[in-house]
């Protein structure tokens, strides 16, 4: 394993906000510098990364988090560069408002992954998030650009209020995908419930999707079945309650 490794020292007792751990320029920070980055704990005293993690290794543009981070929120929030790997699950709002780089979660992610903070107008504006598991609700909330991939299921409201970008779900896309989407793409390789504010357009083979799926194979080693790469998709235009330039692309075996 290369780069920096942050190993959780003990189980998190309370929800912990890691939103300030990876500031702009973080790939150049040493292990010691990263250990001094602040974290917020629910109802607790101010703390640092070093209070919770053993951090080792040398800067290389990659940081790997080890341990159960299911109660750690906002990991890689505002990420602009570099690669963040999580060997396990993460809490809510991972990759919140990120603008670049890669967040690769080898587990589940909580709600609003790649989304927007409270009143913020935009969620992620660039970069790529791969969740090799399930996510909570509202992944890609108000995202403006970028790619969010969920290999498992989404709890619901995928890509709510998307401005643009792509949310790609291998499993069950959950209820109400793409609500209030302006130009975003929701790609459903599994089960998907098309909202009434989307209108069927056609069944075709989108070239751009082939490109994206091949990239997921090559860049992330995802086992994308050939039937998805070379397959047909039902395109639904929407959200017609909004701009209507978005789409849901639902893979079809027919």
């Amino acid at each position: 394993m290369t780069g920096i490794v942050a190993r959780l020292r003990r189980k998190l007792d309370a929800r912990t906000d890691l939103g300030a751990v990876l500031p702009t320029g973080w790939p150049a920070l040493t292990a010691a510098e990263l250990m001094r980055r602040p974290v917020l704990t629910e109802g607790g005293e101010p703390a640092t990364v070093g209070d919770l993690f053993d951090v080792t290794g040398a800067p290389s543009g990659t940081i790997t988090f080890q341990g159960n981070l299911g109660r750690a929120d906002r990991l890689a929030a505002g990420l602009a560069e570099g690669q963040v790997v999580v060997e396990g699950s993460v809490g809510d709002e991972a990759g919140l408002g990120m603008s670049g780089g890669v967040l690769d979660v080898n587990g589940d992610a909580g709600a609003r992954t790649g989304g927007a903070a409270g009143e913020a107008r935009r969620g992620m504006t660039g970069g790529e998030i791969v969740v090799r598991g399930n996510t909570g609700g509202e992944p890609g909330l108000r995202m403006r650009r970028g790619l969010l991939v969920v290999t498992g299921n989404v709890a619901g409201q995928a890509g709510a209020g998307m401005i643009a970008g792509t949310v790609l779900v291998f499993g069950d896309a959950g209820p109400s995908p793409g609500r209030w989407s302006k130009r975003g793409s929701i790609v459903a390789l599994g089960k998907v419930a098309i909202p009434p504010t989307y209108r069927y357009a056609c069944t075709y083979q989108p070239d751009h999707l082939r490109l994206t799926l091949l990239r997921l194979r090559a860049r992330y080693g995802l086992g994308v079945d050939e039937r998805f790469v070379a397959g047909f998709y039902r395109r639904y235009s929407g959200d017609l309650a909004e701009l209507g330039k978005g789409e849901i692309l639902a893979w079809t075996a027919e």
């Binding site: 660039g126 792509t166 130009r183 751009h208 994206t212 990239r215 330039k245």
Partner: peptide, 9 residues
């Protein structure tokens, strides 16, 4: 006006 862009890689 119906065109759409995608950032891929």
């Amino acid at each position: 006006g119906f065109q759409a862009s995608k950032m891929i890689g």
